[in-house]
């Protein structure tokens, strides 16, 4: 029963996509290890990484929480900073509302950046749903296992930069989003938005710069040219995701 279910999933997703998701899960897992290690080496209790990973499940805000609290900041400030960083999940929820509509409580919990990017790269709604839930569930497991291992191992693996993981995760997002950017109606707001975000990053609190990228949406007024082909992730048939 279970075996056939897994085999079915494998057939539905395709070997290529499963490999891609596995790779991202591994990378996220290793970042989870470093998160756990950094958090406990900063003197926070060993259960903290696991607790935050379960109740928050948003890596960037968890790292920030650790950094602010370890620097002697108040928990109140750490929560506010985290909420600012995570505000981007609000539009994610609207973009994926249809995708999670049958399981919205659990689906909303799974809206992790990489998972959102994987899902939005799929055009077909059924496939998008399958990819979202598969990727989300896998990421939850990897992130939590990583955080726990890191917390227990202490300072064993703290510097994941040596493995280039700090370059791998932005590359994951770009690789998943770039196909949508072949559509001019999306490329213009995205490029404008990224430029705005870069310019304001040095001057605003963490998280706000990324939100400012939505200004690109206002300036570029997308969809005016191609109102009938708005889906990103759509175009090229030989896209990375299913190019097996």
């Amino acid at each position: 029963m279970r075996g056939s279910g897994l085999r079915r999933l494998r057939e539905d997703l395709g070997a290529e996509l499963i490999r891609d998701i596995t790779l991202v899960c591994l990378a996220v897992g290793v970042v989870g290890v470093s998160y756990g290690a950094i958090t406990t080496s900063e003197g926070l209790p060993v259960w903290t990484p696991t607790y935050l990973s379960i109740v928050v499940l948003a890596g960037a805000s968890q790292f920030l929480f650790t950094a602010l609290v370890a620097a002697g900041g108040s928990p109140f400030a750490a929560v506010l900073a985290g909420l600012l960083v995570n505000a981007r999940h609000l539009p994610f929820g609207f973009a994926l509302a249809d995708t999670v509509k049958d399981h919205r409580w659990i689906g909303s919990y799974l809206m992790i950046d990489e998972c959102v990017a994987f899902a939005l790269a799929q055009r077909d709604p059924v496939r998008r749903r399958l990819v979202f839930f598969t990727c989300g569930a896998s990421l939850v497991v990897c992130w939590n296992v990583g955080a726990l291992v890191g917390a227990l191992a202490g300072t064993a693996i703290e510097d994941t930069d040596a493995f280039g993981l700090d370059a791998a995760l932005p590359a994951v997002l770009l690789a998943l989003v770039l196909p949508a950017l072949r559509d001019r109606g999306i490329r213009r707001p995205a490029l404008l938005g990224a430029a705005i975000a870069l310019v304001v990053t040095p001057f605003v609190p963490a998280g706000l710069a990324v939100l400012c990228s939505l200004g690109g949406l206002v300036l570029a007024r997308p969809g005016h040219k191609e109102p009938d082909r708005p889906e990103p992730g759509r175009p090229e048939p030989d896209r990375p995701e299913p190019d097996a």
Partner: peptide
């Protein structure tokens, strides 16, 4: 559908900006 499409574009813009800023910036520098 128009609003849904706009939301999808918004999410794409955010993810792209997140990728670009985390590629080039480390915190505020």
């Amino acid at each position: 559908l128009r609003v849904q499409a706009l939301m999808t574009i918004a999410a794409t813009v955010l993810l792209f900006a997140l990728g670009v800023t985390s590629a080039l910036m480390d915190g505020t520098h």
